[in-house]
C-alpha cells in the first residue's frame, strides 16, 4: 500500500508539472493591435470592437476593421463563412497573426450583447 501511494503521488506530481508546462508554453496571449504587429507567435488573440460599416463578405472570406482598447485599428480577414451571429456581434476576438498590414484570423469568437449568458457563441 505504501509503495502504491508513493507511485500515485509521484505520477500525479509529474503529470501536474507536465500539464502546467504545456499550458505555460502554448497558451495564446491577448494582445493589442500594436503588440500583434510586433509578435512573432503563430497565434494571438486580438480583441476589440467591430466597425459594423466595414464588414464585407467576399468569396469565402469576411473582412472588417477592428478597434482595440487603445483605439488602434487593424484590418482583419477571416477565411470562412461569417458566423451566424456576426450581425449581432459588437465585440470580436480574432485569433491568428498579422501578415503584413492585415490580421489573418483562423478563428473568430464573437461577443454579442448577450441575453442568455450561459449559452455560447463562438465560431471556428
Amino acid at each position: 500500500m505504501k509503495a502504491g501511494a508513493i507511485v500515485t503521488v509521484v505520477l500525479t506530481v509529474v503529470g501536474l508539472c507536465a500539464v502546467v508546462f504545456a499550458f505555460v508554453k502554448n497558451s495564446s496571449p491577448y494582445v493589442t493591435v500594436a503588440q500583434a504587429k510586433e509578435s512573432d507567435r503563430p497565434s494571438v488573440h486580438l480583441a476589440g470592437d467591430i466597425d459594423k460599416s466595414t464588414v464585407s463578405v467576399g468569396r469565402g472570406t469576411v473582412s472588417f476593421v477592428i478597434t482595440d482598447e487603445q483605439g488602434a485599428t487593424a484590418h482583419v480577414v477571416f477565411a470562412g463563412p461569417p458566423p451566424a451571429n456576426m450581425g449581432e456581434a459588437t465585440k470580436v476576438v480574432a485569433i491568428g497573426a498579422m501578415k503584413g498590414e492585415v490580421f489573418e484570423a483562423h478563428k473568430l469568437l464573437l461577443k454579442c450583447p448577450s441575453k442568455y449568458e450561459s449559452e455560447d457563441s463562438p465560431t471556428s
Binding site: 463563412p81 451566424a84 465560431t123 471556428s124
Partner: peptide, 21 residues
C-alpha cells in the same frame, strides 16, 4: 449543448472547451 453548437453556424462542431461548457 453539443448538438445546439453543432446546429449553429460557425461553431465548428460539438465541443470547443469554452468555460461555460
Amino acid at each position: 449543448g453539443g448538438f445546439w453548437a453543432y446546429e449553429t453556424l460557425g461553431w465548428g462542431g460539438f465541443w470547443m472547451w469554452d468555460p461555460v461548457e
